[in-house]
């Protein structure tokens, strides 16, 4: 109904802004990673420097631990919540609104509040565990190398499981009721319905949600940065925080760019293999 070129004029401003903010920086990162601070070409020297640093492999494994650990529990807890909220009971809409609260609260607020709750001496959590004798001594949750990462993961899970719940709930509510009726005829109980109807039916939702959680997990530094800044002794250092440190604390932009390139490549590989594995997975043809 109209000339082709008119469409370009409508999308042009947004595209220019995005190209400037996305395409250009991505290309520029590549350039920075193979030059020194005087813009001389240095080949893979920056990559070698970054890879030699002891922090790099540690940050890599920490990142995997952080993303993987978070996702497993976010999905489990979120799905369980969705199944619960899919039941009909009085007050359901109130419970559903309350369940969204962790997701609404800014990450930084969640981080500070939990940091206070996990406080070694005056934190409510140590009190709740020492009072009934669950633990002998107050635990330094955020200063002990063995507990700090699980605690941070727990906070991240608390923050994002409502998102999984909302998405899975929508999926559950779109399941045709004929499936339940057929299952009832066959004498299925509730747990069999969960296993044979609900979970298979929401699988596509879970696949999409998990992908988003992977990307957000790779992006998220707020909780870790606000609580531990990567410490103690780098035990919670994840790659995004390492990039930030190299760039803005050591002011080594070229090394930070080299690390960014590797981070970018790994992120793309993970997403690629995830999508590929799911495309090949059985059950999709259902």
């Amino acid at each position: 109904m109209s000339r082709q070129s008119t469409g370009y004029w409508f999308i042009l401003p947004a595209l220019v802004v995005l190209a400037m903010l996305i395409a250009y920086p991505v290309a520029y990162t590549g350039l920075l990673s193979v030059t020194d601070s005087q813009s001389n070409f240095v080949g893979v020297k920056n990559f070698a420097t970054v890879l030699r640093s002891r922090a790099t492999p540690q940050a890599f494994w920490n990142t995997l631990y952080w993303v993987g650990g978070s996702i497993v529990f976010q999905v489990l807890l979120g799905t369980a919540t969705a199944i619960l909220l899919n039941q009909s009971f009085p007050g359901r809409s109130v419970v559903r609104s309350i369940a969204l609260i962790p997701w609404v609260i800014p990450s930084i607020v969640a981080a500070t509040t939990f940091a206070w709750m996990f406080h070694t001496e005056f934190g409510i959590i140590n009190y709740m565990m020492t009072a009934p004798g669950l633990i002998e001594q107050p635990i330094g949750w955020l200063t002990n190398r063995d507990t700090v990462m699980p605690v941070l993961i727990a906070i991240n899970v608390w923050k994002l499981f409502p998102f999984v719940a909302v998405m899975v709930l929508a999926g559950l509510q779109s399941i045709p009721k004929e499936l339940y009726e057929a299952a009832r005829v066959d004498g299925a109980n509730f747990w069999e319905e969960v296993r044979h109807i609900m979970l298979p039916q929401v699988r596509p939702v879970l696949v999409a949600v998990t992908l988003l959680l992977v990307i957000w997990g790779l992006n998220s530094i707020t909780i870790i940065y606000a609580i531990t800044r990567g410490g103690p002794a780098n035990s919670t250092l994840i790659t995004p925080i390492q990039i930030f440190r190299i760039a803005f604390e050591n002011v080594q932009f070229n090394q930070a760019a080299a690390l960014s390139v590797m981070f970018f490549a790994v992120a793309i590989l993970i997403v690629f293999f995830y999508i590929k594995a799911l495309a090949a997975a059985p059950g999709e043809a259902r």
Binding site: N219, P240, A247, V261
Partner: peptide, 12 residues
């Protein structure tokens, strides 16, 4: 991954 582009964005 936003962390991967903070450096060039900052320079720009």
């Amino acid at each position: 991954p936003t962390a991967a582009i903070i450096v060039p964005l900052f320079v720009t």
